[in-house]
Amino acid sequence: MKIALFIPCYIDQFYPQVGIATLELLEKLGCTVHFPEGQTCCGQPMANTGCERDAIPTYEHYVKTFSGYDYVVTPSGSCAYHVRKHYDIIEQTGAVQHLRKRTLDLSEFLLDVLKVEHLDACFPAKVGLHQSCHGLRGLRLGPGSERNLNAPSALHTLLSMVEGVEIAELERADECCGFGGTFAINEPDISAKMGKDRIADHARAGVEVITAGDMSCLMHLEGLLRRQGSPIQVKHIAEILNTKA
């Protein structure tokens, strides 16, 4: 099984530890992981702003960089969703079709491909799980509170495998944090308010660490937490799953 690791641009630049945790975790689980040189971004920032035409060279670069692997694994539900959902505007070559099926979020890869059932990880803390929207409602990594379906979310399942983790009960299980890519810049007031409200929910539940499958949501929440001087930490779920028992 040839596995490529895709580390999205903002993780690469600002949260290298998330990339490292993802790589180490996959290696720990026996995978040989390739990290294709020259990778950049999935193109979502332009596309979500309405400029998907300007994103086409980035899409093509992604396809060129990641062709020839069985799976592309990324610690971002949002980027995986973007490749799978929105790479429909470029020519649907075999390589594109393959990548639109096989670009997977880390949690999907762990549960659906590796069929992970337990992890040797330990993280003694009260953890608040933030369900990033693109993972939850785009990739369907969980049922979502709106729909009448009964199934645990992928992130919940994985966190439950970590010793010491206590998952907090939130009042609003999966409300958006307000990041939304360029939304955070276009509507800074609403965006910040949404983030503050999410944080308040976690704080009420006594959360010590907020985790998510998307670092972008956490970057937004961390920015607010640090401004507030809050002791609550943020950690990508890969960092928790990669802790040592």
Binding site: Q13, Y15, G223
Partner: peptide, 16 residues
């Protein structure tokens, strides 16, 4: 506008 209510992420020395 990002920094109106939020801190920017702390930039690490090296990228991934």
């Amino acid at each position: 506008t990002w920094g109106k209510a939020r801190e920017l992420p702390e930039a690490p020395k090296e990228s991934f």
